[in-house]
């Protein structure tokens, strides 16, 4: 049970850290546009796709349209 004497202050410190992170990200416009970022993961950068295609030495069947 003595562990609580450490754990609870640690919780408080963690919350303060997350508060700092939240304030930092709000000030840096991280929350201004929530829709775009959620979708961006689905969109490939065409430059990278091309690089992948040419750098691969083995033929990659799944990338080629059949």
């Amino acid at each position: 049970m003595e562990l609580f004497l450490v754990l609870i202050p640690v919780t408080v410190v963690l919350v303060l850290l997350s508060l700092w992170a939240f304030v930092w990200s709000t000030r840096n416009e991280q929350f201004d546009d929530l829709d775009r970022q959620a979708w961006s993961i689905l969109f490939e950068d065409p430059d990278q796709r091309r690089k992948q295609d040419t750098s691969g030495t083995e033929p990659r069947a799944e990338d080629e349209p059949r």
Partner: peptide, 17 residues
């Protein structure tokens, strides 16, 4: 909007623990 979001976030983060 930003000030309000900050207030809301602080309240939410502190409320949970």
């Amino acid at each position: 909007r930003r000030a309000q979001l900050l207030r809301l976030g602080v309240a939410g983060l502190c409320m949970m623990p």
